[in-house]
């Protein structure tokens, strides 16, 4: 582990480079049918996904429900064991670590969940919830640290004695953030952290996350189906469809110049508070996401794509670099511009 820590220190002290590198990540869930003669169908939740997240950056991951965004986040943290592919954290291959090594790396990578209430154990006080990781890793001054963390997320000492069902959803989410920060992580997976909150509270939590990122030099993987929120917080964004990344780029590249028909469809579904603007919107959202148990052949989007042709049904398109850092998976990238 000393070597690992050495490498970690070296990489972080240089303050450059990639915090998370995901290479051809796959996560298939077996779905079994029958009792005696088992038939297994594989649900390909994440199928060959590759991307990088740079130090201090927020990488947004968007897509409809069932596109595999949350599974990607969990598999990166090895909360799910990947079926294939590799994940690197600061050049440490997370996917190759033993259980013990993984435990030592865990403090560096944390996760925040969508539902603030169910991410906190209802039988523990706020103090015990935040203290749990500290005690696990033998920190001294647990009490002072918990109070500092509460303050850092905008809560006070009086919340410490309460139970989760005695505080609001927004406050619960702050507690979850405090718990995630307890071990001084470098990388946080934010799995729809604001989707379950009221709009006014959403903004507060987003601002808190933004502030903490600057103060503590955190790197975020921000998973959301809310494109407005992603645009607000993320630096770069990846669009997922049925377990595949279909477009990656900076916020400007993807939002101002979307190249994949699916991205265009998603973007045109953002409500615009201007009735006249409606006429400008081109793409309509057609149909629903197909079952990931039986994904369409070729390009997975062809069943809903207004531009689909013969080749889309047969061949899966490759990732093409449109301009520097802007990748698209479509046969007709150039033509659709």
């Amino acid at each position: 582990m000393n070597i690992l820590q050495g490498i970690l220190w070296l990489v972080t002290s240089m303050g450059v480079g990639t915090v998370i590198r995901v290479e051809h990540l796959k996560k298939y869930f077996p779905i079994t049918h029958g009792f005696i003669r088992k038939k297994i169908i594989w649900l390909k939740a994440v199928d060959d996904v590759s991307f990088e997240i740079k130090d201090g950056e927020t990488f947004g991951l968007v897509g409809e429900s069932g596109s595999g965004k949350s599974t990607t986040g969990r598999t990166i943290l090895r909360l799910y064991e990947p079926t294939g592919g590799k994940v690197y954290f600061n050049d440490i291959e997370v996917t190759a670590l033993s259980k013990q090594e993984l435990k030592e790396l865990r403090p560096k990578m944390q996760i925040i969940y969508q539902d603030p209430y169910s991410s906190l154990n209802p039988r523990l006080t706020i103090f015990d919830i935040i203290a749990e990781p500290l005690r696990e890793y033998g920190h001294e001054n647990v009490e002072d640290t918990v109070l500092e963390l509460l303050e850092a997320v905008g809560l006070s000492e009086e919340h410490a004695k309460k139970y989760p069902d005695e505080i609001s959803g927004g406050q619960c989410q702050r507690v979850a953030i405090a718990r995630a920060l307890a071990l001084n992580p470098e990388f946080l997976v934010l799995d729809e952290p604001t989707s379950a909150l009221d709009v006014s509270v959403q903004a507060q939590v987003l601002n808190l996350l933004g502030r903490l990122q600057k103060e503590r030099n955190l790197t975020y993987l921000f998973i959301s189906h809310d494109l407005g929120v992603v645009r607000y917080l993320a630096d770069r964004v990846g669009v997922m469809y049925l377990g595949k990344l279909v477009e990656i780029g900076t916020i400007e590249q993807v939002f101002d110049n979307p190249a994949h028909p699916y991205t265009r469809m998603l973007l045109s579904s953002i409500p615009v508070p201007d009735p006249k603007a409606r006429a400008i919107r081109k793409e309509k959202v057609i149909g629903e996401i197909p079952s990931p148990l039986h994904p369409p052949s070729g390009c997975r989007f062809h069943t809903r794509c207004p531009y689909a042709r013969e080749i889309c049904r047969k061949e899966e398109p490759a990732m093409i670099e449109l301009e520097k850092g802007h990748f698209v998976r479509c046969h007709f990238v150039g033509e659709l511009q």
Binding site: R106, P107, I111, E132, A176, L183
Partner: peptide
């Protein structure tokens, strides 16, 4: 919350 605990090692 159980998964969060696993994520904390």
């Amino acid at each position: 919350y159980v998964e969060a605990s696993r994520a904390m090692g």
